[in-house]
């Protein structure tokens, strides 16, 4: 069983549109009937908007705990406020109140309270979902707005997907990843077999691609790159190609800017199913063919397809040298 994760660094480069197209394309060919999908962008879980699946199961997801003050026992001494490093204890109408959004769940206030008036309470922060889509089972989740622990929820979505894939001997899990490089991204990428980074030829896209590649390589996952909206800024696309070549990272495709992608979204379809002859669809089909060949026979770490980690200047703004 292989796990392919779609990432980008910068948001809005087209991860979910690409994932939806792959879900459609994977339903044919060598993985037909053996594919499982996971949406690891739990803050902005959009894959279901395209696939419009039928919900099969919903499980509550409990995140960390937050502190709660028992007003009757509180002496309003303020010791809790001075203990809190997260600015979560605020004065309201002459009383100390915990802001559950700011509370980190560390319980420092619980230990500092002289009258034992503070306890920790578990929070229900979202739910894990299993749905049936036309291209295979979809594991996804919903994080209630403003909640933390999205990394843990991503881990849970991936574990549930992996377990079902193993139980049913499915051969491929396609994971739609979150933007950025932090906790949820690390949860989405760790243990994956292959990462496809979808970038765009903009100064931001290139900058964030470097950081995302650094993260993926930090966790030892082989990475491939494709450029979306490649024709919008050809110089940027060439810069990305040069960068990938210089760092030994395989570029596996370019997708042109194509209004069909937005139209497909509105229609609730993968672009490759909605308009198979659209330029973006043709490019995505060619890209998928290449990915299938890598997934069926992945290059080894010694192959020149996979690079040494990029370590220089990952934090510096600016384009490639």
């Amino acid at each position: 069983m292989k796990q392919l994760v779609i990432l980008s660094g910068k948001g809005g480069t087209g991860k979910t549109s690409v994932t939806a197209a792959f879900a459609h394309l994977a339903a044919q060919g060598p993985f037909a009937g053996r594919v499982l999908l996971a949406d690891a962008d739990v803050d902005a879980a959009n894959l279901e908007l395209v696939l419009q699946p039928r919900r099969l199961d919903t499980q509550p997801f409990r995140g960390g705990q937050v502190a709660v003050i028992d007003e009757d026992r509180c002496l309003i001494c303020g010791d809790c406020e001075s203990a809190c490093r997260f600015d979560a204890i605020v004065e309201t109408d002459g009383r100390w109140v915990i802001d559950p959004i700011a509370c980190d769940g560390c319980a420092a206030c619980v230990y500092q309270c002289p009258t034992e008036s503070i306890r920790m309470q578990e929070q229900r922060v979202g739910e894990c979902r299993l749905s049936d889509s036309r291209y295979g089972p979809l594991h996804h989740a919903h994080l209630h707005p403003g909640q933390e622990n999205s990394g843990k929820l991503v881990t849970q979505v991936r574990q549930r997907a992996r377990q079902q894939a193993l139980d049913e001997e499915r051969r491929l899990v396609i994971v739609d990843g979150p933007p950025g490089i932090g906790c949820p991204v690390i949860a989405a990428v760790s243990g994956a077999d292959l990462a496809l980074l979808v970038t765009e030829p903009t100064v931001s896209g290139i900058h964030d691609l470097r950081r995302a590649l650094g993260t993926v390589q930090h966790f030892g996952v082989p990475a491939l790159v494709c450029i979306n909206k490649a024709d919008v800024y050809p110089k940027g696309a060439r810069d990305i190609e040069t960068f990938c070549e210089a760092n030994g990272i395989a570029m596996v495709g370019s997708i042109p800017f194509d209004p069909s992608i937005a139209s497909a979204l509105v229609a609730g379809e993968a672009v490759t199913a909605y308009r198979p002859e659209a330029p973006a669809s043709l490019a995505l089909s060619a890209l998928w063919e290449r990915l299938v060949s890598v997934l069926v026979e992945p290059p080894t770490r010694q192959d020149d397809g996979f690079a040494e980690p990029i370590t220089d200047n990952l934090n510096q703004p600016g384009t490639f040298q």
């Binding site: 803050d43 902005a44 933007p179």
Partner: peptide, 14 residues
């Protein structure tokens, strides 16, 4: 602000 709707966005908005 960062994208998303979890803790970093909330901290930016506070």
């Amino acid at each position: 602000a960062p994208p998303g709707a979890s803790c970093p966005v909330v901290e930016t908005l506070r």
